[in-house]
Design a binder for these strands. Sequence first.
DNA 1: GGCCGTTTGCGTTTGTGAACACAAACCCTT
DNA 2: AAGGGTTTGTGTTCACAAACGCAAACGGCC
Lengths: 216, 216
Amino acid sequence: MEIPSVVIDRLPLYSRALSSLEAEGREVVSSQELGTRLGVTPAQIRKDLSYFGRFGKQGRGYNVRKLLEELRRILGLDRQWRMALVGVGRLGRAIIGYEGFGPQGFRIIAAFDVDPSRVGEQIDGLTIRDAREIAGALAREPVDVGIVAVPAEIAQDVIDTLVGCGVRAILNYAPIAARVPRGVYIKRIEPVLALQSMTYHLKNEVRPTPSAPAGG
Amino acid sequence: MEIPSVVIDRLPLYSRALSSLEAEGREVVSSQELGTRLGVTPAQIRKDLSYFGRFGKQGRGYNVRKLLEELRRILGLDRQWRMALVGVGRLGRAIIGYEGFGPQGFRIIAAFDVDPSRVGEQIDGLTIRDAREIAGALAREPVDVGIVAVPAEIAQDVIDTLVGCGVRAILNYAPIAARVPRGVYIKRIEPVLALQSMTYHLKNEVRPTPSAPAGG
DNA sequence: GGCCGTTTGCGTTTGTGAACACAAACCCTT
DNA sequence: AAGGGTTTGTGTTCACAAACGCAAACGGCC
């Protein structure tokens, strides 16, 4: 049975909320409470979880630790994932320095750049290598995920290279709608797109001014 | 008439593709070609655009410059947007340094932090101010968007503060499912969530090994 | 100037995901 | 041990978004 991708996308949210509950010492949680915390209906949570099994107890709820373990197993978060970064400009350096990956089991093990002047430089214990070495390097030391932080003009080429090396998941910071073959997964991280859709609402909705009447 | 938010979210993609076409010197484009570039069906593009008017010519397609102008007007991209950043740790500094905002009309005009040791520091011409000054500062110099890059524990409080100051759009980099009142728009930027949903597929789908048979 | 190929705009159909609602199951109290 | 109050899991209903398909409109060519 094919599980809808919207469902898969919600599982990490559940996982994170459960981690938080576990840290608070909670042993049991109901779909009701979880839903309130996350802004999701309880029915949605139950339906999502039911795709993978029966993890709850009627009249009681879900055991926090057990459900968290299940979700981590389902999502593959019970292991380390190796990543390669391509593009070590300002953005790439920030990605290398980002503290959020490590605690969740994601580790950057290689960094590449096309600019020769950057090759050889060390950042956070990572030596920048020439982008032409990608194929050779990934053949010796495979990675699970490719992170693309290069200019838009060469992003599709870089992605093609990574896919050619067997990389099946890509985190794309470049402002392009990249095309990948079936069986390869790509997610874009684009703050500007998020901003540009919010401005639509800012522009169109009138801010209510409670104290002052709308004057003509 | 209420326009579906999925439609709004696609408009920036169209806008960006049209910018690219304009830079290439193209004068006309069909929904067919635009769709191929973006991985969207032509019918979807035409339907999306039809929510806002009739911009094309039958038998010919869309005038690139004209449609781009229309989309920028619709999305509110024909003006500058002022943003305030809260949280100037490693992530916040990277956000200040990000070159992608400016060219699209988004400018960070104020930065705040709760850590007193950071207050007063200058980064890229921006003086870090105490987070307790947010209300006063935004009263004098309103912003359209708030960017939240603080630790998860205080993110909801910061968001509540911003909303209380009249900020109606928030870009949230903190790993929480924040709650905002109706009429306030929030988008999360979370690379880790994107990674965690991709690992589900990596874990479950078997990589085909064409040359070597699966051995037991 | 008329005809043909192309492309838009949009009414209609199809498909998918969210919400609903209820029976079954469980805990706790008495 | 029995009953009441919860909460799950899931079949069904509802809502919405994507795709389809065609009439109308346009440009170019002969």
